[in-house]
Write a protein that binds this DNA or RNA. Structure first.
Lengths: 216, 216
DNA sequence: GTCTATACAGCGATAGAC
DNA sequence: GTCTATCGCTGTATAGAC
């Protein structure tokens, strides 16, 4: 048995992983047009040329970033589903995912890329839209579930409420970052979700049952 | 009397105006890091060097852009106040300002710059925050007014609701643009505002009394 | 107020050695 | 898998003529 990990034989090499982590942080804080190969290389102590070995171009790096982010996000949603929470708690868990991103002083990756949408490679544009659609589908289903089980109450089709919640969370992150104020974000989250719930919220916003976060 | 306009003697020269208009459109669609002096010059059929006569550097151009946008926005809010609307209609008018921006396939200038916040010159960073604060102040006052006159109803301090509305509108624009779907934005607006109003909304979203827009 | 010309830094990207 | 070296291009900015 070699030094290479025996389990999960697939998956990116450690070097590739570290590149993605650094690039992700840069895009989420500075934007896709606000970072360069030189930034990533400097942070990792390697050269720009080495990066091109792992990702042919900036577009490919961007696509890998989004694929990773989306699948991580999807996994976090699946994890919420696995916890047998009621829909009201799932919605809270959903908002917590966003809160955790903001806690790392980051913007949602796809929210950031949505701002830069017109300048992105078309492959990345498609992934931005797909990310939002994935969010909407999960939220719609959860909202409908909540209405059926009686933990959530709202008027009209779930998709409308889902779109309001998702885009409002993106906007709350967008605005909270210049103020460097997580509490501002959390208050907006409470405003948005408290109107949906059929039972009163217990005081503390943290430590909810089955809290799930998208790593880093 | 010369050819120069006899009235409103102050104000930027026509050439400067046109530069600002082109640059504004570019920033609102591509971001501050997504456009260049060359883009502006090409659009106007002049050279990059000519631009530097009007604005020493990109930072100065950016500051002028924000000052203009903020004062235009503030004027639109003052115009809403001048129409003797009730607060519910003022909130609708406020949302209409955003809708008109989106109709021009643009993101709110300061919403766009909020995404790029970490990469902006500090002078521009301050203006981004000031813009959001100005919005919040006006909205808070209007919400309180509406609660006093009975056209609006909401729980808690107005500032909390104001922040939710403003940041949610920013987010709804951010997300609607990749979908190139104004209706999506308008439905979110309805969701956000209908819960505030004490009387039902008349059907059509357009042509409300005293509709005001921020030009371009 | 606009031009030509140019400086100079940074960008994404490639070739080829190790 | 990482390096050195370099290419071609674009970016912001300046000098000086008109």
């Amino acid at each position: 048995m070699t030094k290479k990990r025996a389990v999960s034989p697939a998956g990116p090499a450690p070097a590739t992983q570290r590149i993605l982590e650094v690039a992700e942080q840069l895009v989420q804080t500075r934007g896709f047009n606000g970072f360069s190969y030189a930034d990533v290389a400097a942070e990792l102590g390697i050269t720009k040329a080495a990066l091109h070995y792992h990702f042919a171009g900036k577009a490919e790096l961007g696509e890998a970033l989004m694929a990773r982010y989306s699948s991580r996000f999807e996994e976090a949603l699946a994890e919420l589903d696995r916890h047998h929470l009621d829909a009201a708690d799932k919605v809270d868990g959903y908002a917590d995912i966003y809160t955790d991103v903001l806690r790392h002083r980051r913007m949602c990756l796809c929210g950031m890329l949505a701002a830069e949408y017109d300048t992105l490679p078309t492959s990345m544009q498609r992934e931005v839209v797909a990310f939002f659609e994935m969010n909407e589908v999960w939220l719609s289903q959860t909202l409908e579930e909540g209405r059926n089980e009686g933990t959530l109450a709202f008027a009209g089709p779930p998709i409308g409420v889902a779109r309001t919640i998702m885009s409002s969370l993106e906007g709350a992150m967008l605005v909270a970052r210049p103020f460097d104020d997580i509490a501002r974000f959390e208050r907006v989250v409470d405003q948005l979700t408290s109107g949906l719930k059929t039972r009163p919220e217990d005081a503390g916003g943290s430590g909810r049952p089955g809290s799930v976060r998208v790593p880093s």
